[in-house]
Design a protein around this nucleic acid. Structure first.
Lengths: 148, 148
DNA sequence: GAATGTATACGACAAATGTCGAATATGTCA
DNA sequence: TGACATATTCGACATTTGTCGTATACATTC
């Protein structure tokens, strides 16, 4: 029986807060973009003052999540971390906290407690099948990995 | 093709902080137990003052995560949320933030970017198989679900 | 009942996060 | 060159989280 391998949670530990996630999603979609653009986009779902968004984005630049390109009076923000990096960070934190870093118990939990339906389980099996019959995993992983 | 169902992230949204997770793990294992017991247990991996642990546990009681039973001068803490509830909360927050609440993209991500090995994928498939051939899922889910 | 040890109560403080307003700077246009 | 709109800067403040120290209260034991 194969021993469950724990994914090392220390490497590439990008951790975004709630507000940072919301902002990053807009930046990934529209970069390079101004703080005003982000604020207006977010306003559709949740209204916040421009200064709120700008302050958070400045702090994100300090942390190395965003970088600023200056054009005259304007600042254009670009992401310094990929969505894959952010997802990895979020996933690993969850796995570490709630499942001691082990994948198998998490899968078990999903099936037993999250009401994974037969359809969903089938999808999942198809994904696993694709993986096992050797798809373009390596290549894809390479292309979409960290851009940090 | 089945449409990916988003797990509703609002229901049962138990969210624990890092310190709270560490404490809860000890409480689940040893409840009912005193704050001193928790502090001593945690001290093995990470030393913190008794008052630090006690303050955090009092706050957790305020939040409804723990309850206190008083015996003369002593306080015994018991959990008000199950480990399943806590895991569910942690998992759903991750899923909502990083994958818009959808399971399938998360699975895809796991396979493409987390280097899910063939062995792990096999384990996963076995879990899925067990699920599809009708195990004791319903019963188990019932027994281990929320005790809130 | 005084000394000693253990628990509790509670105030404090720093850092991180989410939030904003107001002052200042810059650009555009009639 | 003003007037007006837009961006940036930056200080401020409330909450939450993690962290303690210290003053009190309670029990046990000479």
């Amino acid at each position: 029986m194969p021993k469950p391998r724990a994914i090392n949670p220390e490497i590439n530990a990008v951790e975004l807060t709630e507000a940072e996630w919301e902002i990053m999603k807009v930046v990934w979609e529209k970069e390079p973009c101004a703080a005003g653009t982000v604020q207006e986009t977010l306003a559709k779902s949740r209204d916040r003052a421009y200064s709120t968004v700008k302050t958070t984005m400045d702090r994100m630049a300090d942390k190395g999540f965003l970088e600023i390109e200056r054009i005259r009076n304007l600042q254009l923000f670009k992401s310094c971390i990929s969505e894959v990096d952010a997802r990895r960070g979020e996933f690993r934190r969850m796995l570490k906290r709630a499942f001691d870093g082990a994948l198998t118990p998490m899968m078990q939990f999903l099936i037993e407690h999250e009401g994974l339906s037969k359809e969903e389980a089938s999808q999942l099996r198809m994904l696993v099948e694709k993986q096992n019959t050797g798809g373009a995993r390596k290549e894809k992983a390479k292309n979409e990995s960290s851009n940090r």
